[in-house]
Design a binder for these strands. Structure first.
Lengths: 366, 366
DNA sequence: TTGAAAGCGCTAACAT
DNA sequence: ATGTTAGCGCTTTCAA
């Protein structure tokens, strides 16, 4: 399976462009020879270890620079048992929410000399498992879960390998691990209360149960807001989304509920679902927000577009991605599973009022 | 800099959760011993080499399976000089166009046992160089450029390392390399001709020059359509975008041109720019499409949303990403720079007519 | 068809 | 403060 045509020997392969054979790799040995020291010493200065004479350090550094030598990270990984590669597990990188988090992570990672591998699982546990196995084999340095099946064995395996990991935008009661998220309960509460304030009583919630607390918390917030307003919880108005948390799923479920129930507002568990719901409403001849008010969650970029104007709950996505890296680097440099284990970084959600909820319609402002 | 607390020795680190010390890694040696063969033989069966007795092969395979042994890809990389990791260089993964291509690539890659690292360069050559150096050090197996500065030295370096690469959605006259793209000239032509058919004469083009032919080709298409219609090319209507090809850039430039020129339509080099332009028009009190018609490029998901309905040129994004993997795997398995070098896979663009161009306004159909 | 041995480029004990 | 030595887990000649 491996490609034997391209061995390190660098035979003058038939297809050579300029006949450039793989020039022998510059190794630590050659640097050592030129600097008149041993490999170990070079290794020491390269790794910023103390206990090395300042003169020799400078001499080595000079040669390293002149020859533009860069240590081979693969060889290094082999002996240290670690890599400089992080993994970002996500349901689908095409969801702008994840892309934004990813970018925050990537930028921070590259600052520390790490790279990040993306894995889109589509929330399929089979794909998730395949990816995790691959990552473990590659001695991945750390993992960021933005989607996770909740499979405990997987986590067990990761812990066994002493690989640090963090959950973003999710939290599991049964599964240990750091997490960075917003207060989802609060977010769900704010969204629903806003709708109630605007006079809505029959508010549909489009959500998803599952192992992660994310959707659940948002729903709890929804329930609390109803309770506070003295509105009875109506399970017919609470729908479980089938399929991924994407546009189409929101569209489909809304098409259905539009036939079955009477309601004047929708609180969707994320923006993609909200947009899909909006689309369905329009198709069925309901105006948004005049007939049906909609509130989403995440505040992805497109929701602010003037002809959309989706009211939603904002999360500091980029910052959350960045924060993941900080946590990971902390563990990577100290105790992987030290006393700070199960740290929870919680941001405050923010209600972003736009057109879709009908706020401006009511003449409250603007 | 490296983390010495986590050496492979697996000392019972202070923060151990369940006291699980790093169990010694399962190696090829142990498989060999259990199968009563040498490491080489195990290696042979693992790599599907011929010249190994069917009986021994089965015996080895059985043990491998039973112990769930998976060879260490890092050790393998060290000796073969290759990895199973691909790189995806992009301006910004938050642009849905790239995310879609990325997903196509990722899915195909994982099928072949490859992973993909994402690098967002923001079109800054400094970041690009940093990433490339990192990737080269990691002996990346292949590179997909969805953004590239045109720096020849960088390509030179990559070629020297015999790493296959492919350009998506771009093509350089001066730089060798496979590419997969649509006929951008045709796309620009279709977009502009459509606008002309709808009666527009003063059509703004928001584009970007640069080393890649992508934007240029679209602009050439624009020019050709004007020429055919006998409309004189007006350089005041052709604007160079500053900054990345993103929403804000389109917004800013349109704000400016709205003050300076008279026009009734805009053809933007991509959807994000088109959306930004749309936003600017609305802010300045121009209705879209009644006062100003807009056509974008890429057909990213959100453009189809009913309250947007951006007319645009479709590219088979996911498929293009998938195609990149095919090209890479071809080279990886055969001559890296063989006779098929500089292959060009060209897809046909498609005009997607929606609301923003005013087609339906004119009563042509619906 | 199989095995022995060397080595990929680096780090880390243990000496000195 | 520095060098020597022994690997990390695999692949790949070369010999049998």
């Amino acid at each position: 399976m491996l490609n034997r045509e391209r061995s390190r020997k660098g035979e003058a392969g038939s297809g050579n462009l300029v006949g450039n054979r793989m020039k022998a790799r510059l190794t630590i040995k050659q640097i050592a020879k030129l600097a008149n020291v041993s490999d170990s010493t070079v290794s020491r200065v390269l790794n910023n270890q103390p206990d090395v004479n300042e003169d020799t350090r400078q001499r080595v550094l000079a040669i390293v620079k002149e020859l533009n030598y860069r240590p081979d990270p693969i060889a290094r990984s082999l002996v240290t048992g670690q890599s400089q590669t992080l993994a970002f597990l996500t349901e689908d990188i095409r969801n702008p929410f994840f892309a934004e988090v990813a970018r925050g992570l990537e930028d921070a990672a590259s600052k520390y000399g790490y790279q990040v591998i993306y894995c889109s699982t589509d929330s399929e546990s089979g794909k998730e498992k395949m990816y995790i196995e691959m990552l473990l084999a590659y001695r991945i340095a750390g993992i960021v879960f933005t989607s996770f099946s909740g499979n405990k064995e997987v986590i067990q395996e990761i812990i066994k390998c002493k690989i640090p990991y963090v959950f973003v935008n999710r939290f599991y009661n049964e599964i240990p691990g750091d997490c960075v998220l917003i207060d989802n309960y609060q977010g769900g509460y704010m969204a629903t209360r806003h709708l109630i304030k605007l006079g809505h009583r029959r508010i549909v919630h489009l959500g998803r149960s599952g192992v992660s607390c994310t959707s659940l918390d948002r729903k709890r917030g929804y329930e609390q807001a109803l309770r506070e307003a003295g509105i009875e919880y109506n399970e017919n108005l609470v729908k479980e989304i089938k399929g991924g948390l994407k546009y189409n799923s929101g569209y489909e479920i809304t098409k259905a509920i539009l036939q079955e129930e009477e309601f004047t507002a929708i609180f969707a568990v994320n923006d993609l679902i909200a947009l899909g719901a909006w689309m369905a409403c329009l198709e069925e001849g309901r105006r948004v927000p005049e007939d049906i008010a909609i509130v989403g969650f995440d505040n992805i970029d497109f929701t602010s577009f003037p002809t959309i104007g989706l009211t939603t709950i904002d999360q500091p996505k980029y910052e959350m991605g960045r924060q993941c890296m900080e946590i990971l680097i902390d563990r990577l440099r100290g105790d992987v599973y030290g006393e700070k284990y199960n740290k929870k970084i919680v941001y405050t959600p923010e209600l972003v009022i736009r057109k879709s909820c009908g706020y401006y319609l009511k003449g409250y402002s603007l």
